[in-house]
Structure formats: C-alpha cells, structure tokens
Amino acid sequence: MTCTKVSLRRRPISRGRYSLHLDYYPGIRNPVTMRISRYENLGIYIYQSPKTAIQKEYNQEMLRKAEAIRSIRVQNLINEDYGFLDKHKLKACFLTYFREKALAKNMKSFSAYKHFENFVKGKCTFEEITVPLCQQFQAYLLQANNLKHKSKKLSQNSAAAYYCVFRSILKIAYREKLLHENLNEYLESTEVEDTKKEFLTLDEVKLLADTPCKHPVMKRASLFACLTGLRMSDIIKLDWDEIVMAPDGEYCMRIRTEKTEKETTLPISNEALELCGEREPGLVFKGLTKHMIFVHVPKWVAQSGIKKKITFHCFRHTFATLQIALGTDIYTVSKMLDHKNVTTTQIYANLVNSKKRESANKISLK
C-alpha cells in the first residue's frame, strides 16, 4: 500500500512537553518485517507553553528539524525507499559484520578488522558509521602501530591497504542495504608511496636454478613462480585438478585466485609443468608452507650469491619484468598476472630500463 500523506503530529507528555511524531496515512508496509506502520516517533520534544524567548526559539528550531524529516520521508516514499523503517538494522553491530566479512576473505582483511576494533574500542553499530568516523579511522591508521610488532609503526602502504579493505566493507554493507548512504562517495583513499620492486634478471634466475636447496619443494615452487607469475597463496593451494588440457592441446591452469576471488585461465609452459613433478591426487606442491617460504627463501637466495633482498613475491615481479623485457605486450602480461587494470602492470614496464633505452633511440635526427 502506498502512503499518500505524511503529517507531523504532537502528543502531550510529562513536564509540560509535546512529543513529535509522524503520522502515515494510509499505513506503509515494512518490506522486511511485513508489518504495517502508521507512526514514527522522531525523538524530538517541544514545550507545550514556552514562557521565555529561549524556549520559544528552541520550539521553532525543533519544529524546523521535524518538518525537514517529514519532507525527507515524503521523498523516500515517492522513491519507494523504505530503509528508514528498518531502524533495528542501524542498532546492529557493525563490528560483528566486519569480522564475519574479514574472516571470509584473507589475513589482510582480518588485520584491517583488528585495527578497526582497536580504533572503536571493541564496540560500533551501523548507526555510528559516519563520514567523520571513517575519516578519523583513516587518520588513526596512519599513526597506528603494527599488530605483531607493536613498537613498529604501520607503513604508509599498509595503512592504505587496510583503509581500502574498510571501504570495500562499507560498499558491501551499502549494497546489502545495511547502510542508507554510500559513504565512499565522500571518502578519499589513502595515498600510496612508491616502493622499490626487487626482481631477478634472467641470469640470476638461472643462477638460482643451479643453486642447491635443502627444501626441493620450495625450490620448484619458486622457479614455478618465476615462470608463471602466480602468487604465493595460489601456488600453495594449487591442485592437480586445476591443471588441465586447453583446447589448443597445451596445458593451462584454471584457478580461482585468492586475492581477486575470480576464476581465471592461465597458460602454463612445458618447463613450468615439469617443475610440478609427477601428477597425483591433491596439491601440486605438497609440504610447501608459508613458514618455509618466509624463513628459507632469503637463505637460499643468499647461498646463490645474489645480493638483492628477494622474497617469494619478487618471483612474481621477476616474471612480469622478464616478459616485458623479452617483448611480450603489456596487455598480455596484465592478463597473465590477473591484474584488474593495465595501469597496475605499467609499473613493471617502468622497471625495464632496456626498453626505455630502446624507445629513446627510436627517435633520431640523423
């Protein structure tokens, strides 16, 4: 039933006051609870018989506010937006909602949740999620300490990443109609600092391949990352069922990447396939763990004589820079890396100095 009239009413209460409420006629049905609503208490009170100039001014101000709310409700009803009826949603715990969403995603999302939990002192409802609060959280992250190493301040890029996670949660909450407004329209992202991306040259990759490693599965996975550009999280959980024959007769990987949470098909070279070992049920790189990678990759790299500070993620940088240096177009590399935007891949193109020199020499006046 559509409401055709919204009236501002007053009801006498204690201490010589009126309570203001809205009267809907005919009543409107809450699309969630299916109950018919006729009245909405505004929580605004005025004096029945104002005696002083201050009381009269107060009454006028409260009546203006009540009339403003009445006008907004009329617009809501015209637009068939009944969100204002679901006041119980605003009282719900946003912190619990954030935690559930973060747990379903990844550790970065959960770290963002933990920082927000610390910021709001363990309590926050949807009603409290406002633009000023979001901006205060952004400022808080820029001054916050690392969760594990409490004496160490968060890096600018970590603060930016956590705030990005927080804004993505706001977007989901708005889409699920738990927030009445898309707050992201009023929020600015945290600026990201340029960081040095370490990568290996082709000769260094070959050197690493010739260097013995006490963990053969880690060595195979590392070289596999150099040849495919796959992220550590995706390599650890890569299953043999995800390596299949493509229509062209070659093998490919059909996976759902952990970071983007979308399915993608990536070609795999014969050399990369050899690094996978014998096909058998289950994981491709059995026994490979994050702890093994974090602890032993730097030791293995140092043993090879390479002086660079290389982490497992640098193997992904290595794949990208080698592909671009060897002439693969940036759009193809972007697809291989499963980037959402080519501009992200452009960073690797800027790292390849040989390409810059080549392009500079193309213009000649001789």
Rank of each mutant, 00 (worst) to 15 (best):
F116S: 03
M336I: 00
F312K: 02
I69V: 03
N157M: 04
P26F: 01
D194Q: 08
Y97H: 12
A53G: 11
Y348Q: 05
E271I: 08
G27I: 10
L266V: 07
E67I: 03
L273A: 05
S168N: 14
P132L: 07
K101H: 12
Q55V: 07
M62G: 11
Y348F: 01
G277Q: 12
R357P: 12
L207Y: 00
T265S: 10
Y39G: 08
C276I: 10
L141A: 07
K206I: 00
R99G: 13
M253C: 13
L178E: 05
Q75N: 13
V74Q: 11
K5F: 08
N41G: 09
K366F: 15
I78M: 15
I172W: 09
R220A: 00
T195H: 15
Y162S: 04
L63V: 14
G27E: 04
I363W: 05
T125V: 09
I46N: 06
K299T: 12
N59T: 03
K309Y: 05
I36C: 09
S304A: 12
S7N: 00
S269K: 01
D23M: 15
N146C: 01
A209P: 07
T332H: 02
I268D: 01
S49R: 10
Y58M: 07
T201S: 12
I46L: 07
V6I: 03
G287S: 02
A160Y: 02
N76M: 13
L202R: 03
G43L: 10
K65A: 11
L202S: 12
E191D: 14
L266R: 06
W300V: 02
V244I: 14
I46A: 05
C93Y: 13
Y25H: 09
I36S: 14
L223R: 03
L179N: 04
T130Y: 05
Y113E: 00
A139H: 11
K150R: 15
C314A: 02
S111V: 07
A246F: 15
I69N: 09
V244H: 10
R99K: 13
T125R: 07
E274K: 10
P216I: 07
R15P: 14
I293Q: 00
F199G: 03
Y331A: 11
H296Y: 11
Y348R: 01
I72R: 15
L178G: 08
Y162D: 05
K105L: 15
T344D: 07
L288M: 00
S168L: 06
I69H: 09
V32Y: 05
E204V: 02
R316K: 05
L337S: 08
K308F: 05
V342T: 00
N353C: 07
E191H: 09
L337T: 01
Q303N: 10
S37E: 14
Q136T: 02
V297R: 08
R9T: 10
F315M: 15
C314N: 04
K259H: 08
Y18R: 02
T195I: 13
T318N: 04
A302W: 06
F119S: 04
I36A: 11
E40N: 03
I236M: 11
E191Q: 14
E274M: 14
C226F: 12
Y47L: 07
E67P: 02
Q60G: 01
P298C: 09
Q323E: 11
I44F: 12
P212G: 06
P298N: 08
T125P: 02
R231E: 00
